[in-house]
């Protein structure tokens, strides 16, 4: 039994290492312009991102990402509460929301470029608006699935409207809100890259696309590598945050399953 566990662990850790080694050695003397040696890519990675363009491009991209995401998160939750709790508001904006959600988020970027221009403002606006919908829709769903018993108890205890919203509805809808936030974060990441690729000269996405257009393949690979790592890390960090905030919920689920 223990042997199997050890074997699985070795396979699990060994495969990525093997793949990376294969990439390193197979590309070692590559003259193919599209697939430069991994060594060259890593050297360019170090030269570009650590720390020459770190402040001017990496921090800029990440700043836009987090600012846009933060706006989307707050606005999404607030709008979600308003639509879920005020039926006329829900009836009014429901069809509009569904229509806007059907538009690929990246397709909104050209519209914002034409309205606001190419600056940081446009990028943050695009990210915030595109990332708004998943959180908002998840919030509405979360509030609607709060059990009536819970709301009845809150009413019997004569909790004020504010207490009911902040102390009963918000925690009860939290698990769904966080699922929505995770989707929003992914959308925000995609729109961050897209907003930089469409005619901007700053940011990781812009640098990666410019490198591709000027056939600086190693630079392009370095950009792809950085974007991949950022996408992975941002997701991991959010999962950790989610686990921390929702620990009460995960615990209660585990208890319910054990019972």
């Amino acid at each position: 039994m223990r042997n199997v566990a050890v074997r699985n662990w070795v396979i699990g850790a060994g495969t990525p290492v093997l793949l990376l080694a294969a990439w390193w050695f197979l590309s070692a003397n590559s003259a193919d312009p599209f697939f430069p040696p991994l060594e060259t890519i890593l050297i360019r990675f170090q030269e570009l991102w650590l720390f020459d363009h770190f402040q001017s491009d990496v921090l800029l991209s990440l700043g836009n990402l987090f600012l846009g995401f933060a706006i989307a998160a707050v606005a999404g939750v607030v709008l979600g509460f308003v639509t879920a709790l005020v039926p006329p508001a829900r009836w009014m904006i429901d069809p509009l929301i569904h229509f806007l959600r059907g538009i690929p988020p990246v397709a909104l970027v050209p519209i914002f470029i034409s309205l606001i221009g190419f600056g940081t403002q446009m990028r943050v606006t695009s990210i915030a608006l595109a990332a708004l919908f998943p959180t908002m829709i998840a919030t509405v769903d979360g509030i609607r699935s709060v059990s009536n018993d819970l709301m009845d108890v809150a009413r019997v205890y004569r909790l004020s409207r504010k207490e009911r919203v902040l102390n009963v509805l918000l925690p009860a809808a939290m698990p769904q809100i966080f699922s929505g936030l995770q989707v929003s974060l992914q959308v925000a990441f995609i729109v961050m890259i897209a907003s930089e690729m469409l005619g901007s000269s700053q940011g990781i996405g812009a640098m990666t696309l410019l490198a591709q257009q000027s056939f600086m393949t190693a630079d392009m690979w370095a950009g792809i590598l950085l974007l991949g790592v950022i996408g992975f890390l941002v997701n991991i960090l959010f999962s950790l945050l989610k686990r921390k905030v929702l620990s009460w919920y995960i615990g209660s689920r585990r208890m319910a399953r054990a019972a």
Partner: peptide
């Protein structure tokens, strides 16, 4: 968690 837009430059190249 890596969206396809990340490898878009490579695919275009």
């Amino acid at each position: 968690p890596v969206p396809p837009i990340v490898i878009l430059p490579l695919a275009v190249l």
